[in-house]
């Protein structure tokens, strides 16, 4: 991520709920930096403070101590009004239960987010349409939000999160209420938001599959954070594996990871055959 702009920085973020004996340290001294174009996944057991951390980062909850910067602005030092204004343009939220405005139509759900940020009329309507059409919802614009399927709802909520072109996208369990096909769809949308649009994306999830699209996975336990390393896919058998403990092989300037020596041998044999037949090398490697 060298040279990429730092979008989020959290230092020593701590949140204590309650007082005295019943005090809960939901988040405990978390340091975190996320850059433009990066998708960071946060995993951890239930009750480990993931949602609490995300809520603080998004400026919806004030930490007990520590500070959060979004694009250089210390949001933990802002007053309520400025904080609301900052959320309006700098942060996009995606939720497990979608949280759409159910009485509004699909296009109005996105349009209202633009209205709230002071963008009205034709501009807002056109932008809403564009965002939705790009996510395959062009034929659902007039539908009532509550009549959509879960996968469609989540795509609407993604379009809404992007409405005001925020640099930071926060998603809490975005695939938990979806079947695996739609979960995968959302996964790839999130990856595109980071890679193609160059936004910083933080996803909280129990969904192991998300590790495949994440640049980094952090483990949160008892409010404290640890790096979990990266998950990669074995190009031969397709298994998801930890990059750190995998069999690595450099080939034509790319690094490939395998679940076992067997797979790496198979890969080498395959490459040799392809070269002999004049084909290019396969995919699945890193630079």
């Amino acid at each position: 991520m060298d040279g990429k702009q730092e979008i989020l920085r959290a230092t020593g973020v701590t949140k204590v709920f309650g007082e005295g004996e019943r005090a809960v340290r939901a988040v405990d001294g978390v340091d975190l930096a996320v850059h433009a174009g990066e998708l960071v996944l946060i995993m951890g057991p239930s009750g480990s403070g993931k949602t609490t951390l995300l809520t603080i980062i998004g400026g919806l909850l004030r930490p007990t101590s520590g500070s959060v910067f979004i694009d250089g602005t210390e949001i933990t030092a802002l007053g309520e009004k400025d904080l609301t204004a900052l959320r309006r343009r700098a942060v996009g939220f995606i939720f497990q239960s979608f949280n759409l405005w159910e009485s509004l139509s699909v296009v109005e759900n996105v349009e209202l987010a633009l209205n709230i940020a002071g963008r009205h009329g034709r501009f807002a309507r056109d932008r809403a349409r564009e965002l939705l059409t790009a996510r395959g919802l062009g034929h659902r614009l007039r539908f009532r939000a509550r009549d959509l399927s879960g996968g469609e709802k989540q795509r609407v909520s993604i379009a809404r999160a992007l409405a005001n072109d925020p640099e930071l996208i926060l998603a809490d369990e975005p695939t938990a209420n979806l079947d695996s096909k739609h979960g995968r769809e959302v996964m790839h949308l999130l990856r595109d938001i980071a890679r193609s649009d160059g936004r910083a994306v933080i996803v909280v999830s129990h969904d192991q599959r998300l590790r495949e699209v994440a640049d980094r996975t952090l483990w949160l336990e008892d409010g404290r954070i640890a790096d979990m390393g990266r998950v990669v896919r074995d190009p031969v058998c397709g298994m998801s594996i930890e990059a750190d403990s995998a069999v690595a092989l450099e080939h034509n300037g790319l690094v490939y990871h395998f679940c076992s020596r067997g797979c790496s041998w198979e890969f080498q044999a395959e490459q040799a055959k392809r070269v002999a037949a004049g084909h290019a090398v396969g995919q699945g490697g890193d630079r």
């Binding site: 919806l60 609301t84 900052l86 959320r87 343009r89 949280n99 405005w101 159910e102």
Partner: peptide, 16 residues
């Protein structure tokens, strides 16, 4: 309540 909460979250002011 929840929908109003979402409006607040995405930056809707109390006046709105």
């Amino acid at each position: 309540t929840r929908e109003f909460g979402v409006m607040k979250a995405v930056g809707g002011s109390p006046g709105f």
